[in-house]
Computed example of a mutant assay.
Amino acid sequence: MSHPVTPWYKQFWPWFLIGLLAMAISVSTTFAVLSVRTFDGMAQEDYYEHGKAINMVLAKQRTAADHGISGQLRLDPLTSDLVLDLEGEARPERLILKLIFPTEDDRDMALTLTHVRDGRYLGQAPDNLRYRWYLQLEPDSASPEWRLVGEARFPTESHITLTPGRAATSDDA
């Protein structure tokens, strides 16, 4: 009553174990290739220089607060026109609005806003602006004296408040 012994390659369990190993190798190889080919951009290479610059940023925001500078930004979702109403003592001819994407630095943009009258500035944003962005507003000069910051999720029909040192939108109220 002996049972015939089948060769190992005709049995289920060796192939199951080989399949698990092959799947683990292929998944780990795929992740290794993806990690080498894609750069996430999250780590700062010159973090020490950025750390030293924080005092300059705080001084710019303190200057904006001392001069009572703030702004209300609106983006027309159809025409992508930017309208900024700036309050306070400052009235430079041009402002730079930096749109900073939270996770991908290659998506960051700098837009120029031109003074038209009584603290109103106009500019043009890219079409179909989407997702969440950090905003920084500074005068267009070699060494800007002040800075306003904000945060927005586009598209939006509401105004975005730019303040010295605190990101806020009209939805916060």
Results as ranks from 00 to 15, higher is better:
P126E: 08
Q44G: 14
A90M: 10
A125Q: 02
G150V: 05
T79M: 06
L99D: 00
K10M: 13
G51F: 07
D105N: 11
T30F: 02
Q124R: 15
R120P: 07
E49M: 09
A110K: 14
S170T: 15
F16R: 04
T103R: 04
T79I: 08
P7T: 15
L84C: 11
L162Y: 04
Y47W: 03
M109S: 08
R147F: 03
S35C: 05
K52A: 13
R117I: 15
T112G: 01
M109F: 07
D46W: 02
P155A: 01
L95T: 08
G88L: 09
S170A: 14
S2Y: 03
A65M: 12
D106K: 15
I54G: 00
E138R: 12
A173P: 05
E138Y: 02
V36I: 09
S141V: 10
M1A: 15
P77D: 06
Y131L: 07
T169C: 12
R120Y: 06
L86Y: 03
R153Y: 06
D76G: 10
R91Q: 13
G68S: 11
A125D: 00
S80D: 11
V27T: 09
T156R: 11
G51H: 04
R94G: 02
L78P: 01
L113N: 09
G150P: 00
D106C: 07
R120L: 12
S143Y: 11
W13V: 11
K10R: 14
Y47E: 01
A168G: 08
H159R: 12
H50R: 14
S141H: 08
R37M: 04
D127R: 13
V83Q: 04
R94Y: 03
L135M: 07
D46G: 01
G88A: 13
N128K: 03
T112V: 10
N128F: 01
L95E: 07
L20Q: 07
K10S: 14
H3W: 10
N55E: 14
P7W: 12
A32Q: 13
E49C: 09
V83R: 02
V83A: 11
R107D: 09
M1L: 15
T163H: 12
T156S: 09
I18H: 01
S2I: 14
Q61M: 10
H115Q: 08
G165S: 03
F101T: 06
T114D: 12
P14Q: 03
G123D: 06
A142I: 13
H67Y: 06
D76Y: 11
P14I: 05
M23K: 06
